[in-house]
Design a protein around this nucleic acid. Structure first.
Length: 279
DNA sequence: GCAGAGCAGAGGCAAATTGC
DNA sequence: GCAATTTGCCTCTGCTCTGC
């Protein structure tokens, strides 16, 4: 289905005809902009206080819950996912702060045609994601961009298959002190139809520093009508390093309270150990 | 299960540097 | 001169380990 859709989109680009404008709604969130007579593909449009991200990234431990100082190198690790989606990951484990950076990268890349460069100053980027601008923050951002560009993900489901980096390329102009990032054009596959979610930046910022709460928030944001999941299922999905279930449940309870406070959702764990969220 | 010690990483802030 | 950016260093936080 998606392959056919993509072929059709490409065909329409090649045709470069005016009828495309009328059909843009058919393609959901991917759209095209006429610029000097050329049609250019861009990321989906979303308000400035939200960050768009493919659901597939939120419903797995790709950006997981990692304890402080517990980041490790993962080689060909199969991530726990929902609905038969297959994710294999190689690279340094990614956590919620890496997700903050990737979300901001995607946001900035929305402003240019796919495959084009985006330039930014470190200070401005750190401010955008509500971080401090100390030396350690500069070093942290650099290491974060390295992680995102070096890691390799393999994603497969019944419709498509993708192998690549989260950031296609990044480098720094030492003269202008600017970072330049480029995203892989194929990333647009993940933004077709209802396969992506807009994350409220305001709500996410309220959960800053609380990695499990941030993961839970993103996970349930990707659900229009949240299903109930067992505590054990969520434990596996978020990639928690807490092996003992009752300990994880304790943390989860606290996180659900924090998410509830930040979003206004009703969150509870029933006697059968199922987590219920009501938006 | 709890308390205290030690440690690593993150956070905070003031000062220095740079560019306009 | 001023705002933006970068640097240096100290403090804070949260985790593990150990002993009780």
């Amino acid at each position: 289905m998606y392959k056919n859709l993509y072929n059709r989109i490409n065909k329409l680009i090649n045709e470069n005809n005016s009828s495309l404008k009328k059909k843009k709604n058919y393609y959901g969130t991917s759209y095209f902009l006429k610029n000097n007579g050329k049609l250019i593909k861009k990321m989906p449009v979303i308000s400035d206080n939200k960050r768009s991200i493919p659901n597939i990234m939120l419903r797995s431990s790709l950006f997981g819950v990692i304890k402080k100082g517990n980041r490790k190198y993962e080689k060909n690790v199969l991530k726990t996912t929902l609905n038969g989606i297959f994710i294999r990951f190689t690279g340094e484990s990614l956590d919620q702060t890496d997700l903050d950076v990737w979300l901001e990268c995607l946001h900035r890349l929305k402003k240019v045609p796919l495959g084009e460069k985006v330039k930014f100053k470190t200070y401005n980027f750190l401010k955008s994601i509500n971080r401090k601008t100390g030396r350690s923050d500069y070093e942290w951002l650099k290491s974060c961009l390295i992680r995102l560009s070096v890691c390799c993900i393999e994603i497969r489901d019944e419709h498509f298959f993708y192998v690549g980096h989260l950031l296609h390329e990044w480098y720094r102009n030492e003269k202008t002190k600017e970072y330049i990032i480029i995203l892989n054009k194929k990333i647009i596959y993940f933004f077709t139809d209802a396969m992506w979610t807009g994350i409220s930046l305001k709500e996410r910022m309220k959960l800053k520093g609380k990695s499990l709460s941030q993961w839970i928030h993103c996970f349930y944001c990707s659900h229009k009508n949240p299903l109930s999941y067992k505590v054990q299922t969520l434990q596996k999905l978020c990639g928690s390093s807490i092996i003992v279930l009752w300990k994880f449940r304790q943390n989860l309870k606290k996180s659900l309270e924090e998410v509830s406070f930040a979003t206004g959702w009703k969150c509870l764990i029933d006697i059968n150990d199922h987590v219920h969220i009501k938006k």
